[in-house]
Computed example of a mutant assay.
Amino acid sequence: MIDRLPIQQKEALLLVTSHQFSYRESASILGVSDSYLKILVFRARKALRDKEGKEADER
């Protein structure tokens, strides 16, 4: 499911969750502001929740 996310959202989410970088470190790596990184992570998590909910409804 994570492969379906836009690349920036996927990278942001992976840096924060899997690699356990701080938001500030992750933002620096991606070359974006801290606030934009938070938006990317929020949107990635929301997209995953929405996709998970749709799949559950289809069962």
Score class of each variant (00 low, 15 high):
Ile39His: 10
Glu58Trp: 12
Gln8Leu: 11
Gln20Glu: 14
Gln9Tyr: 05
Tyr36Lys: 14
Ser26Ile: 02
Val41Gly: 00
Tyr23Asp: 07
Phe21Cys: 13
Ile7Gln: 13
Gln9Leu: 05
Arg4Asp: 10
Glu52Thr: 14
Lys54Phe: 14
Ser28Glu: 14
Tyr36Ile: 03
Val41Pro: 00
His19Asp: 07
Ile2Gln: 01
Leu5Cys: 04
Ile39Leu: 10
Glu11Leu: 15
Gln8Ser: 13
Gln8Cys: 06
Asp57Ser: 10
Leu30Trp: 07
Gly53Asp: 07
Asp34Cys: 01
Gly31Val: 06
Ser35Leu: 11
Ile39Pro: 00
Tyr36Pro: 00
Ser35Asn: 12
Lys10Asn: 05
Arg4Gly: 06
Asp34Gln: 06
Ile39Met: 05
Lys46Gln: 14
Leu30Glu: 09
Ala27Phe: 04
Asp34Glu: 11
Asp3Phe: 06
Leu13Pro: 01
Glu25Met: 09
Pro6Gly: 05
Val16Leu: 09
Gln8Pro: 04
Leu15Cys: 05
Ile29Cys: 03
Ile7Ala: 15
Ala56Cys: 01
Phe21Trp: 15
Ser28Cys: 05
Leu48Phe: 10
Ser33Val: 04
Ser22Gln: 08
Thr17Trp: 10
Leu37Gln: 06
Ile7Met: 11
Asp34Asn: 08
Gln8Trp: 07
Ile2Thr: 02
Lys10Gln: 13
Ser26Tyr: 02
Arg45Asp: 03
Leu40Ser: 06
Ile29Tyr: 07
Gln8Thr: 06
Ser18Gly: 05
Ser18Lys: 08
Gly31Phe: 07
Glu11Thr: 04
Arg24Asp: 08
Ile39Lys: 10
Glu58Thr: 07
Tyr36Ala: 08
